[in-house]
Amino acid sequence: MNFKGKKITDIVSVVPSQISRFDDEIENYSFSRAKCMKLKEIMGFDEHRIAPENITASDLCEFAFNHLVENKGLQRESIDAMIFVTHTPDHFIPPTSSILHGKLGLKEDSLCFDINHGCAGFIIGLQQAFMLLEQDGINKVALLNGDTLSRKINNKDRNSFPVVGDAGAVTIIENDNNTSDIKIFTKNRGKDAMVLKIPAGAFRMPSNKDTSKDIDVGDGNFRSLENLNMEGASVFSFVQLEVPLMVDEILKVNNLSKDDVDYYMFHQPNKFMLEKLADKIEVAREKMPNNIVEIYGNSNSVTIPVNITHNLGSKLLEDKKLKLCLAGFGVGLTWASMILDMGSLNSCEIIEYEE
């Protein structure tokens, strides 16, 4: 898809103040301390942010939105549409976007809806925002990404729990005729959707006393059918094969070389995967930051805004435009990418949630 006259003006990410450390979690895993420390080095395990049980993804996004209102001059009545992207809604019914509409004090004729998406969810959300901005009467869209996926991952699963993190983000997008065209590629491979799943808990397999039992899955990890289950080798192979091809494709249609891009701000499943991906694409690892998991954790669709605000926050407040390639990949299986110029933002920061 090709869009004209669209601009990101604000990005605020929010993380819980509660820090969980891999070194303190080692006793949960049926692995020697020496092997755990080797995993820490390779995968980038260190700290991650875990939300208290009473805090939801919508709470994190509400906090970030109110920060923009109270500290950055965002006007609630200026929001013509609001999109909430999450895998962890407050309820099955009503939509969490409806709850947020009320809490954020948005006007009654603002369009609000949820998108159930994960790793590529930031780019999917931006695409939806851009399409909404093509409509008369919609001039400013708030994209909210949030997940508290930590409570759906077993803390005895050393493959997944050390990398998970909870976070939220608010991105404001507006019409602006002084911007370059933006092209977005999205692809799906639904036949392989179940390589990343939570099997039980919805209507295909409702929760019961058996689905909540921890099971030794055979590699020293424990999880129940209500926990996240990822076929790691399949996901790794998919990312290493398909994402470089998409990056080559989007560079080609933009008439750009790899060196023309200032930063590759990608979804961050773990440090190891990003290092291998940078090598496969043949770009310097310094241009593809991979430090988010070891500081905050993998927060699903929120990793890209967390990546941007943590690593480029001050740079993007300057007048100079940076050319960024964004890419998200994973749950679905879905992968998406875009290239855009970003700079002169009103705000670009990461904050801690306070109750």
Rank of each mutant, 00 (worst) to 15 (best):
P305I: 04
K321F: 04
F3N: 03
A327M: 06
P244E: 05
S17C: 04
D23N: 13
N139E: 15
N54L: 02
N229P: 00
L277T: 10
F236G: 00
H48Q: 14
K183P: 00
P89R: 08
L104E: 10
M338K: 00
L74T: 13
N346F: 03
G232H: 03
A202Y: 14
K252I: 01
S237Q: 07
I182S: 01
E70M: 09
N155H: 13
T334H: 04
A193M: 13
H310K: 14
E286A: 12
P162N: 09
D181G: 08
I250R: 00
F222N: 09
V14I: 15
L326I: 04
S207Y: 10
K6E: 10
K323D: 00
A34S: 13
A193W: 11
E108V: 07
C348S: 13
T88C: 14
L143S: 05
N270C: 13
S150W: 02
C36T: 01
N116P: 07
M43H: 02
S207D: 09
V164I: 15
D109Q: 13
F329S: 04
M338P: 02
G137A: 06
H117D: 15
M37K: 11
D46V: 03
A169F: 02
D59K: 07
S30M: 12
K152N: 15
F130T: 01
N290C: 15
I124M: 10
C61Y: 10
K107T: 12
I308G: 06
P199C: 02
D216H: 14
M230T: 08
R189Q: 15
A278Y: 10
L251G: 05
L111F: 14
I339K: 01
V253K: 09
I11N: 05
I123K: 04
I138W: 03
N307H: 10
N221Y: 03
A51D: 02
P52T: 02
L106F: 12
I115K: 08
K280R: 14
A51G: 02
K213G: 01
K4V: 04
M205I: 14
S98D: 11
L317D: 06
T179W: 08
T88G: 09
L60T: 07
L149A: 13
L256V: 06
T309I: 01
H48M: 09
D114C: 11
T96N: 09
I295G: 00
S58Q: 03
E355V: 03
I281S: 11
H67K: 14
Y296K: 09
F92T: 08
Y353D: 05
S58N: 04
D23G: 02
A284Y: 05
D319A: 12
S344R: 06
G168L: 05
I123E: 02
K72T: 02
E294Y: 04
S30K: 15
G168N: 04
K103I: 07
F3Q: 09
